[in-house]
Design a protein around this nucleic acid. Structure first.
Length: 219
DNA sequence: GCGACAG
DNA sequence: ATCTTGTCGC
């Protein structure tokens, strides 16, 4: 699939923050509710600055894997909380460009709107591709929330600076919740529906689990 | 002011 | 993210 060009690439935190502030206005918070091809994305790190990005596309109806792509690369930016996306964006974009199909939902490992400047990895990938995107975090990042109820499907809003930016969502009974937020062209209700649907058996959505496995054990 | 801070 | 053993539960 085709992805918008990344350059110019930031070299300082101020430049990276400026990129986020500039692209933030392009995020759309409504979009489709049904998806047929869902992509999971993840990155695995080796040593100091080597990484492998993986994208797995699955059929949303059957949950069968349709396409898999891995790309080896280098860390593209130092790790700074809030600028995490710049580490892995080039490798993830290259993996998406090598995909022979265009997915209609990106399931990202990290945050979307629930981010210090409202523009996490899921927003960035959504805006660059123009595709609906959502973010799934494994630990709380910004904002505050009550613990969700214990049942699968229970959730609590994540509030940051007076606005609801995501949800703490229980995907399995009595298992630690995941932290979901909108990336691009999707509503928070649809994010919740999709993450629940894509995580029928484990805490994390299947597309992310498969991408994680692929990044660790490339073809 | 200080520490903590997605992966 | 990664460095790491055993243990509990399905």
């Amino acid at each position: 699939m085709q992805v918008k060009q990344l350059h110019p690439w930031p070299t300082t935190t101020a430049e990276a923050e400026a990129v986020q502030d500039r692209l933030r206005g392009r995020v759309e918070l409504t979009g489709p509710v049904d998806f047929s091809l869902v992509a999971g994305l993840d990155v695995h790190y080796h040593g100091d600055d080597a990484l492998t990005a993986a994208v797995v596309v699955l059929d949303a109806g059957t949950m069968a894997t349709v396409e898999e792509v891995t790309v080896r690369g280098r860390v593209a930016f130092p790790y700074v909380p809030g600028l995490f996306a710049f580490r892995e964006l080039p490798a993830l974009v290259e993996a998406l460009e090598r995909l022979p199909v265009t997915p209609d939902l990106l399931v990202c490992d990290g945050y979307g709107l629930a981010h210090p400047r409202g523009f996490g990895l899921a927003c960035h990938l959504g805006v660059l591709t123009g595709l609906p995107a959502l973010g799934v975090g494994k630990t709380p990042f910004v904002g505050t929330h009550e613990p969700p109820g214990p049942e699968r499907g229970d959730w609590a809003p994540i509030v940051h600076e007076g606005a609801v930016v995501g949800r703490a969502l229980r995907t399995q009974r009595a298992i630690k919740p995941v932290y979901v937020s909108q990336g691009h062209r999707i509503s928070l209700d649809t994010v919740t529906d999709q993450v629940l649907r894509l995580a029928p058996r484990y805490r994390l959505p299947d597309p992310i689990r498969r991408a994680d496995h692929l990044a660790r054990h490339p073809g």
